[in-house]
Design a binder for these strands. Structure first.
Lengths: 343, 343
DNA sequence: TTGTAGGCGTTATCAA
DNA sequence: TTGATAACGCCTACAA
């Protein structure tokens, strides 16, 4: 039974075929300067003997791993699993492999993940930052070694790291502007940790839109939480206690928006008539909740594809890291019933 | 600047400290027989010099990779991203790393993924089978090399491969039984590819429950599709054309169930009064759709944790593969409004 | 077109 | 407790 006892090496193949190991090595990697016939024989023998190349040896020799590392806050969100799926597709199509880890939203784990990635000798790294990450020194060892690190979605401005994200400011501006145009005057804004660009930018967009409509920003209307269903339900309860009630809610993710809608509906609030609501992300649930949720569409799958492509281009073209610009992807406001007041 | 020029090796550290590379190696892995002081010095120097161990060399020498491979049909489903999150947690806590790839539901890609995993020398493999996989010969090379392969969720019965799954037969039986108890007499059953245990078993459960209630199985009431929202909407349209209308629908995932509910509601059907509906998986949308969806809860996160733990136990205890039994995880029927008829 | 030979960085064995 | 040495399997100048 081939391969059942010990691993076959190129030397075993060489011996059997009375050629040198070098020739076997060349043949197996389609090196141009090797006789067609010899190559055919070698490939055939390799298959018969159950040979598999030893990537450790090869990597050791060549000093690269063909592995792309990914660090994300959580794997199990609708958005992030789309991103990962997109990354995987591109990475796989380019004969790279993927090592994935999650920071579980803590900087501590993010640091330890980064260390692991470094020791695993990833050729490049894709990162979306944890909720509470305050610095990115833990990625410096990569830069020193010229291993490209690319941030996506939850990014940090820094010359060494190319970034891929959407224009969160603009998207949030559009959402808020839309709500205002629907007649909202007092819009509660539920938002996340202001350390992260995605959240800070959205708050900025909210403020800016208010200003454009000559409405004073009211700190009391901003609720910062972790955007989970649980904390958002609590936020909705708090909103119910407000007097007067707000007439709009803009919350920066859909999990949170759905949770709010559920609480408010149960309390007898009419949506969008009494309170218009908009979210962010266009999760599948946005089209399931009633009324359907107005939100920002922002395709994770595409972001994953683009991020992976950019990184791999780097790697194969040996471009200098600095040369790559940041990339801003398109997002779009999708207006649905949760914010559509009849004229 | 440490580490900025060339990679530091144990020889560099050895030279600087006037000890041998062997001692450095031992010190860095906490080998017991090395002087406390020497160790301290070595560890300190390593940090200062920006040393990182070369996993290629180490793996080559030790003949294992500390990498666990995962092959799943798709990464971006609610269930699967939970599974992956669970796997990642356990794998990471045990100082293994994770290589992930998706078969995109085709056997062809599954085979090529398996090859890549083999060449990457994973220490173990976790697999959930693609929609149309008919054989599992592509995993035999792992078995020959005593690399454990463990199937989860979408499994195949085979002595060489331990399996983790839920009792799909029982779960489906309970769902059907519940619908029957609610007074349903004609239950449409929407199901997936019967090649896969998860789907075949659920059909079996459906049939068995009918039989227990002395209701004849009617082939006409079974719709086989890919369980996507799109095909399920089409199925719902077909159901609307049935004469007489069925009074129940049991579909084997929640995406499908939600899609059906949306179509039926739009057509003016009262749920659950006219048609009671149940799904499978307990996706987040199950609690968002109105009426809330009766479904089978079946925690992916836990399945991921258990699968990874089992595999890693194998690896660390060097147990024989055959000794591990299959594991059946708990699942539970969750009755919600979509199937609750007032008595 | 093919072969020779050295080295990638680590660890295990043996000896000191 | 430490050191010398020989693999691990592959790749790539360089030579033939």
């Amino acid at each position: 039974m081939p391969g059942s006892e010990k691993e076959i090496t190129i030397y075993d193949i060489a011996e059997k075929l009375k050629v040198s190991a070098a020739t076997v090595s060349r043949a197996l990697k389609d090196h141009p300067r090797v006789n067609k016939n010899t190559k055919k024989k070698i490939v055939k023998a390799a298959a018969e003997m159950g040979y598999r190349s030893n990537s450790f040896a090869s990597n050791l020799r060549r000093k690269n791993s063909n592995i792309i590392g990914v660090i994300v806050p959580r794997l199990n969100s609708s958005f992030m699993s789309d991103v990962i799926a997109g990354i995987e597709k591109v990475v796989n199509n380019n004969n790279y492999n993927l090592i994935i880890s999650q920071s579980l939203e803590t900087m501590k784990k993010e640091i330890s993940n980064a260390k692991a990635m470094l020791n695993n000798r990833v050729d490049g790294l894709l990162v979306s930052l944890a909720y509470d990450t305050t610095g990115i020194e833990h990625f410096e060892p990569f830069i020193k070694r010229k291993i490209p690190v690319l941030f996506f979605d939850r990014i940090i401005e820094h010359a060494h790291y190319p970034q891929i994200y959407i224009d969160n400011f603009k998207a949030a501006y559009e959402v808020t502007d839309h709500l205002l145009q629907q007649g909202c005057k007092r819009i509660v804004h539920i938002n996340g940790n202001q350390l992260r660009n995605v959240y800070a930018e959205r708050l900025r967009g909210y403020k800016q839109a208010l200003e454009a409509h000559h409405i004073d920003f009211d700190e009391q209307l901003v609720i910062i939480n972790d955007l989970s269903a649980k904390e958002s339900a609590a936020a909705a309860e708090a909103i119910l206690q407000m007097n007067p009630l707000p007439d709009g809610i803009f919350t920066v993710n859909d999990v949170s928006a759905v949770s709010c809608i559920q609480v408010l509906k149960k309390a007898g609030i009419k949506i969008p008539e009494q309170i218009a609501i908009a979210g962010f992300n266009n999760d599948p649930a946005a089209c399931v909740i009633e009324p359907n949720l107005t939100t920002v569409n922002y395709k994770g799958y595409e972001m994953g594809e683009v991020a992976a492509s950019m990184l791999i281009n780097h790697l194969t073209n040996r471009q200098d890291l600095q040369q790559t610009h940041s990339l801003i992807l398109r997002s779009e406001l999708i207006v649905r019933e949760s914010s559509s007041r009849k004229k």
